[in-house]
């Protein structure tokens, strides 16, 4: 049921990438537990704006956990303490009255800081650009039911495809690796008949791009899986490792 709590927010403030950053503390009194953490930040911002101060910058958009725009650390955890939940869906009923929350941006070499809690995550898009698609031109598709895909097979591909590109896996990895992100896309397409023709080449290209963008390697700490709001399994990373050694449409790559 609805109640009010008081919260202390320790926020990372950094006006722009070049400016030095530091923590700033704000207190919210009597804020409804029916609000999300982002809505609590909205309230704080309205207060700051009314007195002529700069509002706290953070990324957000859909606020229903699907666009992947939001994401920062809450007490050291990407998207906060609740499993399978983006920070926009984190409601204050998760917290005790009087709690202190430390909010910091995702930190990774490949994620440049922008402002306060916001970072640039376009490096993830460039991994997709390297091969995260099936090369099919509009108009050339065969009849949809010409390709049969088993129910379980489609469900597994869907599980991997549900990645929202929020970057929590990177932010929670000690190596700032994008292995879970990359593996998820490879597993989505690699398990479907449509993805077979480019399967090996795709794996090589995306993994190479991941390294080139400054993401680290996987050392199996599995923090990525724990932080993933879509609960994408880290088993896909092992799957990706096997994929890289696979003989397929690109024998040259498979030898390396």
């Amino acid at each position: 049921m609805s109640r009010s709590i008081a919260l202390t927010l320790r926020l990372w403030r950094q006006a722009c990438p070049e400016a030095p950053g530091g923590f700033e503390t704000h207190r919210l009194e009597a804020v409804s537990t029916d609000l999300s953490l982002l809505e609590a930040l909205d309230q704080l911002n309205e207060r700051l704006i009314a007195v002529g101060q700069r509002p706290v910058g953070f990324e957000h958009d859909c606020r229903e956990g699907i666009c992947g725009a939001c994401g920062f650390l809450v007490n050291g955890q990407a998207h906060g303490p609740r499993a399978a939940t983006t920070v926009c869906q984190l409601y204050l009923r998760e917290f005790e009255d009087g709690a202190t929350l430390t909010l910091e941006p995702f930190r990774a070499r490949a994620f440049a800081p922008l402002q306060d809690l916001a970072v640039e995550r376009t490096a993830l898009d460039r991994i997709l650009e390297a091969g995260g698609y099936c090369s099919v031109n509009t108009g050339s598709a065969p009849e949809a039911n010409a390709l049969l895909v088993g129910r379980e097979q489609a469900a597994r591909a869907f599980d991997a495809a549900s990645c929202i590109g929020c970057g929590a896996c990177v932010a929670s990895c000690r190596n700032a690796s994008a292995s879970l992100f990359t593996a998820a896309k490879l597993a989505h397409l690699g398990q479907l008949p449509q993805g077979q023709p480019e399967r090996s080449r795709r794996a090589q290209a995306m993994v190479q791009r991941m390294a080139a963008e400054g993401f680290g390697d996987c050392s199996s700490h599995l923090e990525c899986e724990a932080a993933c709001p879509k609960q994408i399994s880290a088993d896909w990373i092992s799957w990706m490792q096997r994929e890289l050694r696979r003989q397929g449409d690109n024998p040259a790559a498979a030898r390396s």
Binding site: Y133, C134, V136, T138, G139, S140, A141, P142, E143, A144, L147, L148, V149, G150, R151, Q153, A154, A155, A157, F158, A161, H188, L189, L192, Q194, G195
Partner: peptide, 16 residues
């Protein structure tokens, strides 16, 4: 047809 060819994982019947 086109979305299936792109690899969109639509729901399937058991027969595929």
């Amino acid at each position: 047809d086109h979305c299936v060819a792109q690899g969109v994982p639509f729901a399937r019947e058991y027969g595929g």
